[in-house]
Design a protein around this nucleic acid. Sequence first.
DNA 1: GTGTCTGATTTACCTTTGGGCTCC
DNA 2: CGGAGCCCTTTGGTAAATCAGACA
Length: 907
Amino acid sequence: MRSRGRSKQKRRASGSGVLAKTCPEAGDKLISCANEVGSSMKETDDSNLHLDHLAGVPQSESERNEYQALEPVLPPKTLETGHCSRNIMRNESLKEKCDDVSLDKSHLNNKEDLDDSDWEEGSIATDDHRMTIELNVTPDLSMQKRIRRALSQDKGFAELVHKVHLLCLLSRGRLIDRVCDDPLIQASLLSLLPAHLLQLSNVTKLTSKALYPLVAWFHNSFRVRKFMSAEVSFHSALASALETREGSFEEIAALSVALFRALKLTTRFVSILDVASLKPGQSIRSDASGSSKGIFNASTVMVSRPEEDFRPPKKLFSGYVRENSSESSLGQSHERKEGHSTSHVTESRNPPFVDELNGSASNSQNSETEYDHPDCVTNRIGKLKRKGDLEYEMQLEMALSATAIRDESKKESCLRILNADSEKINCSSKRTKRIISDESLTFPNEISTTVGPMKFESPLYWAEVYCNGENLTGKWVHIDVINLIIDGEHKVESMVASCKTSLRYVLAFAGQGAKDVTRRYCTKWHKIASQRVSSMWWDSVLAPLRELESGTTGGVVHSETNQTMSAESSKSNSFVPTRSSLEDIEFETRALTEPLPTNQQAYRSHPLYALERWLNRYQVLHPKGPILGFCSGLPVYPRTCVQPLKTKGRWLREGLQVKANEHPAKVLKSSVKKLEKVQGSAVDYDDCSDSKENIELYGKWQLEPLNLPHAVNGIVPKNERGQVEVWSEKCLPPGTVHLRFPKAFAVAKRLEIDYAPAMVGFEFKNGRSHPVFDGIVVCAEFKDVLLEAYAEVEERTRAEEKKMDEARALSRWYQLLSSMVTRKRLNNRYNNSLPLETTSTNNQPRDNKELNAMVSGPDTAKVEVPSYRQTIEHQHVFLKEHESFDEESSLLTKRCQCGFSVQVEQL
DNA sequence: GTGTCTGATTTACCTTTGGGCTCC
DNA sequence: CGGAGCCCTTTGGTAAATCAGACA
């Protein structure tokens, strides 16, 4: 467990490094959060563990994985000392739990058995006994509460993971987009292109139809294999894919984008960001395979290692087999082994993205194995094959023949890769027994097929080409070369749905920027809206990328109609349509014309439509119409008709008041319990039903600006409590001001100015609400007077404080010196022979002469203390006639004839 | 197998105006 | 004696959100 934790720690450290590069802030936040949650979840998992044991349910693998997955996020120190500290933590939690549950006496008769020594000693040893103690203890409410709390904590963590994953995938998209602009790749693609297809770049009015021959050629020329090239830069992978005319879904789609761009077509690389769920406990594609994978287990290779040279892609896993090869023994045998289909494209419940993720995850694991054990790579050749490998090789041979791959060289390459793969798997399995996921260790099928099986593959990557010949203003045309679909934007949603992929974020990349084009492909926005991150955050993230994108693709639209329009509009200097702005309008239109949902639940939080039935207590339809349609016989209204309702008091806080003679739009009955609380236990409910306890609600249309009574003759209008509620500036009575300086009321009181305490809110303390006051409200005409008076008071207070400080300092000096003098005198008089204890020196003076010389230095004279010699020989006499009194400071100064003076504060 | 509805459970938000004691 | 300040104790109701199970 420890070694596994450590190795994972290493991996996680490298992973977080990539994250930190991509988005340092988010990465740090995530990591710190992961630490927090990790530690808390460990506790939680411990709790779960106990509960599972209690219930006799073994802990599930996924839960264990989750536990393990979070562990390595702990700082390295934790690992070194972690075992101990964790155990201590567990012991503490155990102790706490034991205390919580009051230790069932039938099992723990003597509570003293659990004395402190048991908890403090041998933390490691107690670890093993942990379960035994808790086996029969019923989990109490506090424990359940703690688990629940952890769940709510998970939400925040899941959101962070979601956000970081989004950022990572955004970066990935930009990376691919940049490679698509590579002139060398574009030139190479052009060199492959038949001459007649080169004409496309000269077409002035491009239509989707015109693109068909090009797309068809590409579809037939390139093959897809269902895994990603690992540990090489995307550029190298793409170059390799171009060379072999075979690549992953991502690479093929990127090549198509590069080709379109080479032909000077305005093209975007479009990708579905299949991001980790926003909700805790759901994996990236939990519904697809049922395998629960953490985001970090399924991370994409974001960037290649900078020091890494080009290496041919390591072909690790594949699952893409021609449709008609589904009967192949290979596929079937592994299907049986692994318990799920790998041979049939449409049956394969792994969309390519997940496979790629898995691939990269396992690749990263494997690659690390390689780095740690270079022998695994270098000694591949000549290594003895296991029985299973031989078996597998035979099966592959059969599969190859079944899938009609006749190209011997390809066959060889397949076998070569197979060997590499199986060895890699062996290698990694030696290193760690942990299985990332059942999919990731599916035996590789390095059988390529031409692009485009009979049944479609889940679209994750495609291109958008701007066709200026489509519509009046031009149009972004969806082109999926993998599935040979042109202008099939309406098909994407259903294809994605049937492939169990989610369509939450569809991003179009161009010019190093990105634009969210989900609206184009998603008709049921209400279904995905809740699965997306808050739009405010997402918009702020995308804002700079959108600018980059529109800078590249958002040229001014020139169509005949637009030309006439723009000629007219240019005079008035108004809107000039660009591709980007037209697209935005298109998306807005789509947003407003979403089809009516068929189930009632969807109306609960639908942004466009509402059913009266699903309005909450504080909502009402106003006006009640128009009816847009019906759902289950219930009329559907536009959401814009839903008006919020509030009580008079609540509207007051917003500076609004209910118009005269308005009847409540809705009256809510107070709950029985509330009435009980208010009126005591004996309540006649019938009497109360119509009482003022009912909550009267009003809508916006019944309101007018607040019309508070004016301040007259310097008197502030107050409420029944003698206060003014200052929720905002709007709540101030006309002619008054809010002064917030401290002790303002004291100043107002002294000047006899009418004021009211300003209540600015409530705070909840000791189980009840307390009003919070801040400053006072006075009539505006007194504002300056009060401010001046306050400034004066402030100044006086400061001066007084200063004077007090000075007096205090003088007094203390006097006390110190007089005590020294007294001490010296006493010493001289009664104990001449004894060494003196001076307060300031360790060098004790040997005789009086020395002391006198020391104390009567020039410094002492400054503080009006006479020389020590004088003091010793002379008793001060303070005569009345030499006294002086300073009235301002109340200080009485007494003087002796010798020049010694004392100040005394007169009280 | 999927979608929808319903009821139970959990979570998050809203509510909202003391009083006794000590010290100065 | 009166005013200021500290401290006590740490809600509880309700609706929305979520989940699980039944049913078509």
